[in-house]
Nucleic acid binder design. Sequence first.
DNA 1: TGTATTCCTTACTCTGTAAGTCAACAATCC
DNA 2: GGATTGTTGACTTACAGAGTAAGGAATACA
Lengths: 134, 134
Amino acid sequence: MVITRATEYAIRTVIYLAKQPKGDIVLKKDICRTQEVTPAFLTKILQPLIKAGIVSSQRGVGGGFLLACDPQSINLLDLLEAEEGPLKLNHCLIDSGDCLRKAYCAAHLVWTEAQGEMVRVLKKHSIADLAAQD
Amino acid sequence: MVITRATEYAIRTVIYLAKQPKGDIVLKKDICRTQEVTPAFLTKILQPLIKAGIVSSQRGVGGGFLLACDPQSINLLDLLEAEEGPLKLNHCLIDSGDCLRKAYCAAHLVWTEAQGEMVRVLKKHSIADLAAQD
DNA sequence: TGTATTCCTTACTCTGTAAGTCAACAATCC
DNA sequence: GGATTGTTGACTTACAGAGTAAGGAATACA
């Protein structure tokens, strides 16, 4: 029932990238130094963000990482789902076929509502907003 | 990021107890049979509910379990917290002293808000309501 | 008093996921 | 072609979730 550290680091990193001058490429080791993550772990964390089209990377001399999109268009839910997969408060919310019990399903609607509210809040704040607050 | 099975079973069980005639004592094995939980696991799940004053138990012949309070006064958050401890979406929401990083704390307010909404929804529906819907 | 009944306590196992590491590989620049 | 920088996949370690098992303690009733 807790957000993973990978997601936390992903958020820190994306906020950091959003604060750089637009188009600037940042070295992995600079992210590591400022965000206090090890290079090996940051590598692992960045890959899902790259695959989701949130961050882009460049190899070789002068290479590094930068935002692949407008920070106004990314929110915390995007980052969380890139790292952890679809948000689900309960097993039954992934595949409604799982939820066979009537007694259980009385609670089902409540889980759905709670998750919906969570999604609403996480979508509401863009990375640009968070970077500006920082 | 998922509610545990213990919490699910706890909810099923409490809804089941709430549907019994008031004051009726239910055998563990009857709960097990109707709710599809093993006795050993149900034992483990019931203890926190008893300690939280939600369910009460009686030993010996004619013993069993029954609700210890008005089903109108219990909600899903009570059950979840009895089983899993205080709800927290993120590590920093337990002890604000953990949250030292500014970059992280930009997200902190969002976690707080998301968790607040979740709490609000889980508190809104009493066990009596859920039992009636069932 | 003794015994059957019923829940209580504690320790244990098994499995999966989070968190993080490592080493070989691939692209790019000069 | 070599230095630099990111990529990939396999690996380790630790911990929490999920469930089991066995002996102990309370209660009712004969």
